[in-house]
Amino acid sequence: MPKSNTILYLDGVSVSFDGFRAINNLSLVLDKGEMRAIIGPNGAGKTTMMDIVTGKTRPDAGEVYFDGQVDLTKHDEAEIAMMGIGRKFQKPTVFESHTIEDNLMLALKGPRSIFPALFHRRSAAEARQIDDILGIIRLGDKRDELAANLSHGQKQWLEIGMLLAQDPKLLLVDEPVAGMTDAETEETARLLRDIARDHSVIVVEHDMHFVRELGVKVTCLHEGSVLSEGSLDFVSADERVVEVYLGR
């Protein structure tokens, strides 16, 4: 397979924990600018796949390439994040003892070394960016509140906002709409479609309604490898997917 036009390229990736194979010979290719939805039963290895891409977990075998040429297995989390891979966790993790605004400020794209941070002064451009993002995630009126005081759904939004602030090339979004109302879910789908216009995105989600809203190619993982891939209609018609995931 040519890697040249891919943003993410996984081939034959395997990882096991204490003998348990969480990812088993997984191959997955994401083209530049593509958005992909990943579904699959609990424990299928979706989150683990993201752990591998972001450098949290080292694969036992296989190739993981970013942007067609960077071997991600040779880099750690911070380097990978700096290359332009952003991640939203399944369990929303924000900096609870900071305000929403400070959360975004820490995520904002820019130099990542100590001394610039020590003497940092917020520029007008940064302030504007933060305002924009606050507008998008609809937390503008709460900018000075501690993140600890946000609801579950609001934390999800804040984390998406932090992703936006990071402005990565590839976004990995793990279950973004868990704990959201239907209206919020639709809103999130719209936001992601918006983002996908100039970013590559992988979304993991169990909410089939949301996946349908996204309207993108779907990959179904099962027991650590790809079970089925294609349009949502194609995948949900697949006997095996129905068997292990969707149910009859």
């Binding site: 750690d76 991640r87 932090m162």
Partner: peptide, 14 residues
């Protein structure tokens, strides 16, 4: 202090 791994995924060297 509060979420070390999160800072790493934002690109900071914790």
């Amino acid at each position: 202090r509060d979420a070390e791994s999160r800072t790493r995924f934002l690109g900071w060297r914790a």
